[in-house]
């Protein structure tokens, strides 16, 4: 087994009173897609900022490609490519200018420069638009250009911080095709943060972070096996009574979810007909599904990963002003 490409040991980042990253440790292996999953404000971006030398850790240690992120910043920077959560393009210049700038500061050798720029622009289907000013690009085009730029210097590790946030499903799929293709071709390690579950499924391993703490880390399949059972959701005429009944008859915990109840069982397909026959209460609706990463998260933290897109930042803002987790 080769050395892990990223090693994080007891990393802490505080902003004043707020502990954004709370003593986390993990490794990322060469060539894997490592998913960093957690709700807004969990500390994902902060962790990335530390790993890419934009922020200094308050305590702890991290190395990337064998280089210390505090003491060997230049080497670390050479080893990484980034697609930030928020745009970091110069929109007063053209797409081509942006890539040239990048190629030069990353010291891409002059003979290879134009060829590579053409290659990455073709990959994200922006070659035809290369001479247009970035401010005229759509949100999806900008994100694709950033992706192309992040790949231009053949980084060892590509950081994707919520790379598809706010994009339409078609563009999201598109971007994923590029990333997966790249990984196959170049063996690039991908460090991905997201709060989309379907994207996290693409990862080889997932770390779940909540309120700055690492709460689980494993392959998606194993994480889901942790929840283990299938999930039954029912709506009945009398949920309180139904909950009592389910609890006593099947010895399983019942969760209230709006006007629905959900609980876990083994082998849901066989359970369902039996349950409907046995149930003393009138069932209005019932459904069965396999556990998802969402359920893993729910089980681990007791909360849902919120998947809202619009208004995220506003809520985030309110949450912070409310002092969410400031220790008083």
């Amino acid at each position: 087994m080769p050395e892990p490409i990223i090693k994080v040991e007891n990393l802490v980042k505080k902003y004043g009173q707020l502990v954004a990253v709370d003593n986390i440790s993990f490794n990322v292996n060469q060539g894997e897609i490592f998913g960093f999953l957690g709700p807004n404000g969990a500390g994902k971006t902060t962790t990335i900022n530390i790993l890419c030398t934009l922020a200094r850790p308050t305590a702890g240690k991290a190395t990337l490609n064998g280089f210390d992120v505090v003491h060997q910043q230049n080497q670390v920077r050479h080893s990484i490519g980034l697609v930030f959560q928020d745009s970091s393009l110069d929109d007063r210049l053209t797409g081509l200018h942006n890539l040239r700038f990048h190629a030069m500061v990353y010291n891409v050798p002059a003979p290879a420069r134009n060829e590579r720029i053409e290659q990455v622009l073709n990959m994200v289907d922006l070659w035809d638009k290369r001479n247009k000013f970035v401010r005229t690009y759509s949100g999806g085009m900008k994100r694709r250009l950033e992706l192309a730029r992040g790949l231009l210097h053949y980084p060892k590790v590509l950081f994707l911080d919520e790379p598809t946030l706010g994009l339409d499903p078609q563009t999201r799929n598109h971007i994923w095709e590029y990333v997966l293709e790249l990984r196959k071709r170049e063996g690039t390690t991908v460090f991905l943060t997201t709060h989309y579950m379907d994207e996290a499924e693409k990862a080889s391993r997932i770390a779940i972070i909540d309120q700055g703490k690492l709460v689980a880390m494993d392959t998606p399949a194993k994480l889901k096996r942790m929840v283990g059972q299938d999930i039954i959701t029912v709506r009945t005429d009398d949920n309180t009574k139904a909950a009592e009944e389910i609890k006593s008859r099947y010895q399983t915990a019942v969760r209230k979810d709006g006007d629905q109840l959900s609980f876990n069982v083994d082998n849901g397909e066989e359970f369902l007909p039996v349950f409907i026959k046995e149930s003393g209460i009138k069932i209005a609706s019932i459904s069965l599904r396999r556990p998802t990463l969402e359920d893993v998260f729910l089980k681990l933290t007791g909360r849902e990963i919120r998947e809202e897109e619009v208004g995220d930042s506003i809520k985030e803002h309110l949450r912070q002003r409310g002092g969410g987790r400031m220790p008083h």
Binding site: T53, N74, R77, L82, F84, S88, L89, D90
Partner: peptide, 17 residues
């Protein structure tokens, strides 16, 4: 402005001092 529009990040994370 670069900070506001994000480009400063591209500059600060580049391998130049």
């Amino acid at each position: 402005w670069d900070r506001e529009f994000g480009f400063l990040k591209e500059v600060l994370v580049a391998p130049i001092s």
